[in-house]
Design a protein around this nucleic acid. Structure first.
Length: 478
RNA sequence: GGGCGUGUCGGCUAGAGGCAGGCCUUCAGGUUCUCAGCCUGACAGCGAGGGUUCGAUUCCCUCCACGCCUACCA
């Protein structure tokens, strides 16, 4: 049987980094086995689902290269892949279960359920459905429904024995059946809950391995019960850990960026983010950390996923991003910088700048901050910083004057300028750095830049001399 | 409260009944005109307590901590 796996995100809010994380494991498993990876949109929550959110899921998965073989926007043999387009499928399955005696109609109102829960929690009992309608004669419930009472269908769960299943990541997991609630399967609006839709669709779509987040482990017994009462073969269960905030709680946007859009907009390279996600829970032989999806496919098995929840460490992500940015050719990096400010600029100039900043970028959006002085007409600087703590305005002005003097007649190459400026430093009996720094600040407005003379070469003679002269004049007018 | 899950340097992880290794971060040197990068090196860990064993971080038990679930959300 071919491996078929899926991710089933809900289109609510921004595309989530956890979706990408689970997608990576699913897709890698499918590819390793020559199987299929599907995307199914679980939009049965009509209040929260929205099309924009769905569109961003498609977009961000493609941005990351986490492409799927079947999905709402790419089609496939077991579609539709959007649960809102499958709503007609679920009620008959739910009713089928009622006929089999595995589920029942329930007409309890929200008010009653809330009152029951309140009483239970006051009595320090587990809040759960009390079985009210389950224990009523079916005819009684039917009478209420015929009279127009809203109804749902609930799963009838046994209250004795235990549910055992093997989880590939965690080993055997056991739940007592009496801990499992009579879950609503079909809501009063006729739409399915996650539990019903998920099981029905996974079956109909031929899903062989359910690789999903750990938060689902508690509802797995309900799903297993559903497979059992439908008479279907359950998939292999694999619950991967949840990404965590620094404080180890489930990753959340309040404490850590979770939107894939954010990572894209900051200028994290998709291949770096995917590689980083792979490190969370999975490790390659020999401790290899920088690797491609193809390399991961050769080594990946679900058993090797760590069960512990990994803290999402931005510092290591930054490092990983640096690894990938430095591997890029200058041409490719220039292209990637396009959306971050490079696109509107003179391509020839950008081409000369990129090698100077390649080692200095943390994320692509650093581009503007790192290169502003290449494009500006003039630069601003603080005279106090220009002069520094160890010098005086007069001394600094004289250094700048001397620099202007030799640069005026200097061949405008980094090497020639460096030679001349070192001669100046020697003749003034100062360290090269004490000369280079005021020039750097005068020319770029910044204390940290790429190597000075290489930078000046790219900025150009006219601008550099004008900036030096302007800085000198501020220190000693006239 | 209940159920389930998880505990190896600050973070990500490798490991095996016999010297706990790698990566990120941090720190210290080196390269250097600054920053970054790069190179060297250093600091730092088996949650706690009991057992089994010649020997336990590894196997067993108890405890503790943390996380998730406990919806007509997913």
């Amino acid at each position: 049987m071919p491996v078929r796996v899926r991710i089933a995100p809900s289109p609510t809010g921004d595309p989530h980094v956890g979706t990408a994380y689970v997608a990576l494991f699913n897709r890698t498993w499918a590819r390793r086995n020559g199987g299929q990876f599907l995307l199914r949109i679980e939009d049965t929550d009509r209040a929260r689902s929205n099309p924009e959110s769905e569109r961003m899921i498609f977009e961000s998965l493609k941005w990351l290269g986490l492409t799927y073989d079947e999905g709402p926007d790419v089609g496939g043999p077991t579609g539709p892949y959007r649960q809102s387009e499958r709503v007609s499928i679920y009620p008959k399955h739910a009713k089928d279960l009622v006929e089999k005696g595995a589920a029942y109609y329930c007409t309890c109102t929200a008010d009653r359920l809330e009152a029951v829960r309140k009483a239970q929690s006051a009595a320090k009992l587990a809040p759960r459905y009390d079985g009210h309608c389950r224990n009523l004669p079916p005819a009684e419930v039917k009478k209420q429904i015929d009279a127009g009472a809203p109804w749902v269908i609930r799963l009838k769960v046994a209250n004795e024995g235990e549910c055992r299943f093997k989880d590939v990541v965690r080993g055997e997991v056991v739940f007592a059946w009496d801990q499992i609630d009579d879950q609503i399967l079909l809501k009063s609006d006729g739409w399915p809950t996650y539990h019903l839709a998920n099981v029905v669709d996974d079956h109909l779509m031929g899903i062989t391995h359910v690789i999903r987040a750990e938060e689902w482990i508690s509802s797995t017994p309900k799903h297993i019960k559903l497979y059992e009462v439908f008479g279907w073969e359950p998939p292999v269960w694999c619950h991967v850990p949840l990404l965590r905030n620094k404080d180890k709680s489930k990753i959340s946007k309040r404490k850590n960026p979770t939107s894939l859009n954010w990572y894209r907009d900051q200028g994290y390279l998709p291949e770096a983010l995917v590689n980083f996600l792979g490190l969370m829970g999975f490790s390659m032989p020999a401790g290899l950390e920088v690797y491609s999806p193809a390399e991961m496919e050769k080594e990946f098995t679900i058993e090797k996923i760590n069960a512990g929840g990994p803290v999402f460490d931005m510092q290591k992500l930054d490092w990983m991003n640096g690894q990938y940015m430095r591997k890029l050719s200058a041409e490719e990096l220039a292209k990637r910088l396009g959306p971050f400010g490079a696109a509107g600029k003179d391509p020839a100039l950008v081409k000369r700048i990129v090698p100077l900043i390649q080692d200095r970028l943390r994320v692509l959006s650093d581009f503007g901050e790192l290169t502003s002085f290449f494009f500006a007409e003039t630069v601003e600087h603080d005279p106090a910083v220009l002069v520094g703590k160890k010098s005086t305005a007069a001394e600094t002005a004289s250094l700048l004057a001397a620099a202007v003097e030799v640069l005026k007649s200097c061949e405008w190459t980094a090497a020639a300028m460096e030679g001349k400026l070192r001669e100046v430093a020697t003749s003034k009996n100062i360290k090269p750095g004490d000369l280079f720094m005021p020039i750097r600040i005068a020319v770029t407005g910044k204390a940290a830049t790429p190597p000075l003379t290489e930078t000046m070469e790219v900025i150009g003679k006219e601008k550099c001399l004008a900036r030096l002269e302007a800085a000198r004049k501020r220190l000693s007018p006239g």
